[in-house]
Write a protein that binds this DNA or RNA. Structure first.
Lengths: 361, 361
DNA sequence: CGAAACACCGTAAACGTTTACAGATCCTTG
DNA sequence: CAAGGATCTGTAAACGTTTACGGTGTTTCG
């Protein structure tokens, strides 16, 4: 790996100055003869621009960071899959930060913006602390936050609407004649947990159903925990006829336990998940799930950031992405898509459209 | 976003030269008094090192690229999830390239190595063409390839062993008494498709089973396609008692169709998938699947690259990661893990251990 | 007390670009 | 043919660091 050629090398070989080389490479007006010489030299030497030197001078790295807790989380993955092509099309590289569940790491990442190795950042905070807001205020580069941030925070903001999402699900269950609708939630000190708990209460109230503490069980956002929570719930109350689960993994755990307990889904108990991940379509019975529009939030965030990188100084924007209820077999015995195999398969394929290539050998 | 402070700003404020500032910031021996002044000034100004300038001078970007066709593919995702923490721990950032199914894009990415915005790269090529080999030979930075590359190619190489993987599965099915074992494959002009087709043939031969063309169906690596292929297969031959599917999505499609046809799984037909993705544990019945060790291949690749970045000039290494058969309900009626709900849930949670947080609100 | 040894620090060059400015070359025109 | 303008090109500075080198001031020792 010998020292690669630089514009100086080219300049010498072409017998011109480095300024001319630079001009040719950037397509600035130059005499044909010079262009030819420079191009020839560059070609022969296999010259490639040094991105680092470029960035230093131009103060643009053409890199954007995406920071979230864990790429393995289907919701974040869905965002990533939309963000990536949008950025790529605009000529930006994507730097990935998987911060883990540690809030301090998120702050670190925000701080590292000062190193100027990226032009901007899209972040999905686990929770929004005072420290976050402070760093966001002082950020050295534009940040777009996915997840709600208080009014007045000087960043673009893309929000989900889990309130409406939960209402859609509860309304759906109620319309199917269910009245003992339980909530299986994750920890209420997380942003999604809190939002979903509150939304559940509101949705019941709007329908005139009583809020029964017995019907709320709190576990964690995992399958095993979800299962345990549901088991506890079933032990306590016997007449549950629907489960609103705070995410798809919890719902899968619920299916496990219901099956073991001999309850039929959806005849005895209807189940709704949340996030509409690939798992929802894969499970059996397939899972009715509330999509909070992760993919779309990702796309919107990327677009907001690009806008900001281009023009810079407009007011912070807030976009809320509406939720969508995807009805499958776990709430209605014969969802249209499941009767026709082709249709069902077609739908599933669309959902995981680019889950392609069978791995590698 | 005012112009941030530089070492020059600090130097002025602390009343020393930029050389001293640099020395202090890099922990080189300096008088206590100077250290104090510089640190104080840096603190007050909220100074953060400029990574670009650093990289230019030091010729190290502390960035590594990971390039594959699509992050949405569970196999690649599994790699990514292992690569990320390894690199992070070593102080490297991760630049993600999702090239899509276009081979030319992979070549582009290799070419862009010359821009020197990363110190090295991990790549999972869709297929390995002449152009790939040529670029790999001339690469301006170390590359680790996941997927087989011919002997003599000057890069570190991490391989799966789908041959052994298929054999594990076929042996398992045969041991369960199945003799009409069909193969549902993806396109045979892809690397994995070809390897799996050949491996299937070999495995049958080793067991003394006849190779029956009727039992091989070729579709694509998607769920819908898998379903269609299996439907065609069932139409043609009636006595199939086991399906070896070339990936998990195909296997899910198979489950759809078998259910619709009124066949019981595994009593009438046993089904095996490949890649052991999250979907395998989520489906019902849960899917026996051959893990080709994507996660481990990712980890190994990252480690090989780090080694190479540190010492540089040793011989290219080749590591082959062994496959593993994960037995679940789709081949044996009562797999141990499924009878005990807690156990089943626990296992699933382990598989998707950090599929956490319920999304965001 | 002078010189040698040492510790610390500042000057300046370098990394590979882009670009303002001024100088050189060419063409046009009176 | 001289002058003027229009083009093109080269010199040099800048981006924000790191680091080799030499200079200063202090200490130590003969």
């Amino acid at each position: 790996m010998a020292q690669g050629p630089t514009i100086t090398t080219i300049a010498e070989r072409a017998g011109v100055s480095i300024a001319s080389v630079s001009r040719v490479l950037n397509g600035l007006p130059t005499r044909q003869e010079t262009v030819r010489k420079v191009m020839a030299a560059a070609e022969e030497l296999g010259y490639v621009r040094n991105a680092v030197a470029r960035s230093l001078k131009s103060r643009r790295t053409h890199q954007v960071a995406f920071a979230m807790a864990d790429v393995g989380n289907p919701a974040y993955l869905a965002m990533l899959r939309e963000i990536q092509p949008v950025l790529k099309a605009a000529g930006y590289r994507l730097v990935l930060h998987s911060t883990g569940a540690v809030v301090a790491d998120e702050i670190d990442v925000l701080h590292s913006l000062g190193e100027r190795y990226v032009d901007g950042m899209i972040m999905v905070p686990l929770r929004v602390t005072e420290a976050h807001l402070q760093m966001l205020g002082a950020a050295r580069a534009p940040v777009v936050v996915i997840g709600s941030v208080p009014e007045g925070t000087p960043v673009d903001n893309v929000r989900a609407d889990s309130r409406t999402g939960v209402r859609l699900a509860v309304d759906h269950l109620h319309a199917l004649g269910r009245c003992r609708i339980a909530l299986v939630n994750g920890p209420t000190d997380t942003v999604p947990g809190a939002a979903r708990g509150a939304a559940y209460r509101e949705a019941l109230a709007e329908l005139g159903l009583p809020y029964d503490e017995e019907l709320v069980e709190i576990g964690d956002f995992y399958r095993a925990e979800g299962g345990r929570a549901v088991a506890a719930l079933l032990n306590r109350v016997s007449d549950v006829d629907a489960l609103m689960c705070a995410n798809d993994l919890i719902a899968l755990g619920a299916l496990d336990v219901l099956r073991a307990a001999g309850k039929r889904v959806p005849e005895d108990v209807a189940v709704v998940g949340m996030d509409d991940t690939d798992l929802a379509a894969a499970s059996w019975p397939s899972l009715t799930s509330v999509s909070l529009g992760s993919a779309e939030r990702g796309r919107v965030a990327a677009e907001l950031l690009l806008d900001r990188l281009q023009d810079g100084e407009h007011e912070p924007r807030v976009v809320t992405v509406p939720p969508r209820l995807v009805v499958r077999a776990s709430t209605t015995p014969e969802p249209p898509a499941v009767r026709d195999v082709t249709g069902a398969a077609g739908q599933a394929a669309t959902q995981s459209r680019s889950t392609e290539g069978g791995g590698t050998s």
